[in-house]
Design a binder for these strands. Structure first.
Lengths: 221, 221
DNA sequence: ATGTCAAATAATATCGATATTTTTGGAGAT
DNA sequence: ATCTCCAAAAATATCGATATTATTTGACAT
């Protein structure tokens, strides 16, 4: 690293920083689906060397956000209706399993976390804060975390990100169609606090299916 | 690459070669769980540079076969009963979904594939061929491939590999306790050919649970 | 005009060296 | 003896340069 500690917090390695930045660029659509990702171009954009860029792209490959064609470099993963619907299906299957396990492990500390995350999400939404996306993910992940199944949690997190990408692409930004999302979140929260696994999972899946059908209807083929 | 084309087939990039070799070393336990993976050491072992090794390790991180501690290098992923049981649970959940989707898309070409893979597996087993592991995986993946859900298929493949690692670790090699595995495979195959999704998934899950309980009983904590 | 092949160009993949960080080991103080 | 701190050693992460491979371009033949 250089003499001066960067203005921006560079707490972690260059590789990790590049990973986070590139992921954000792809999720938000600033690097559109199918775009060729040239090392040199990204190297300049991220102000770093070729090795960290290359490693970050390798990691994103495993997140299914980047495609690698051997000896022919990297490109942003393509999108499509079939892919979107597979993501939706996997989310319903995996998040149901995770939420049920979470509720089985329910305790007071977890309930506190849920209430807190839900509150922060509402707060961010009211202020139209750009942090809403983060808070929304934090709430959904809090629902699942208590399962204490790290791999399952990781899959759900990955799939969440893949899904959010479609939302950005559909809207040019994170614009929820203001169906009564707040009420849906409230129902999920209430059922989880009641430790009613059937109701909670039903609400959760309904929540995803609705958003899914809307986005799916916007897509061709 | 050097002047002489390697005796061994080096069809792909050094990175990909390193990835496959390292994955094999970890799956078979030659690189035991928790082992520190030093770049220099692997560089010499694989006869390649630091960059391909590093990239291969990054990829294996996403396969959950390698753990990365930032600024502190890589190590082979640890193992444990909880991890094993999570893998087992996820396999049951995901493979059931995949097999049901596969059967829904059933056609003659798929049935042919199944029969063929099953035959090859039996053949490899009879000859006590070391290819049995590959043939076994090929049969199981053939059951799922017809779902045409690439992400789901990929998860299942990943989880299959994670599971096989425990088998190697438990036995020092791929030794199935000779319960009547052949009969179990036959039941799954027959049900799939009958397009009986309920029976096929029941047999499949039973197949996993049995192996799982046996391996789980061998593990501490 | 069009298709083919070869040279020129551009991009990737890999290497070797350096800078940074972590870990180790030992001297001195309590 | 044990703990703390600092220097030495080792390992990681990163950079810059080179070799390799893919792509483009344009000349030539059909």
């Amino acid at each position: 690293m250089n003499v001066v500690t960067d203005t921006e917090s560079k707490e972690t390695s260059a590789t990790h920083g590049a990973y986070l930045k590139l992921r954000d660029l792809i999720l938000t659509g600033e690097l559109p689906p199918g775009e060729k990702l040239k090392i040199e171009q990204l190297r300049k954009l991220l102000q770093t060397g070729a090795s960290p860029v290359r490693e970050a792209l390798s990691l994103l490959t495993s997140d299914m956000l980047v495609e690698r064609i051997d000896q022919r470099g990297f490109r942003a993963a393509p999108v499509g209706k079939a892919n979107f619907e597979e993501i939706l299906m996997l989310r319903c299957t995996l998040e149901e399993a995770a939420l049920r396990a979470s509720i089985q492990n329910a305790d007071a500390a977890w309930e506190d976390q849920l209430v807190l995350r839900h509150h922060h999400m509402k707060r961010a939404n009211a202020r139209k804060s750009t942090d809403f996306e983060d808070a929304h993910k934090a709430f959904h992940m809090a629902l699942l975390d208590n399962a204490r199944l790290p791999m399952l949690t990781r899959y759900c997190s990955q799939l969440y990100d893949l899904n959010i990408r479609y939302r950005y692409l559909a809207a040019g930004g994170p614009s929820y169609q203001k169906r009564d999302i707040a009420a849906e979140h409230q129902s999920i929260l209430d059922a989880a606090l009641d430790r009613d696994a059937d109701a909670a999972t039903a609400h959760l899946i309904e929540h995803y299916q609705r958003t899914g059908e809307y986005l799916s209807s916007l897509m061709k083929a």
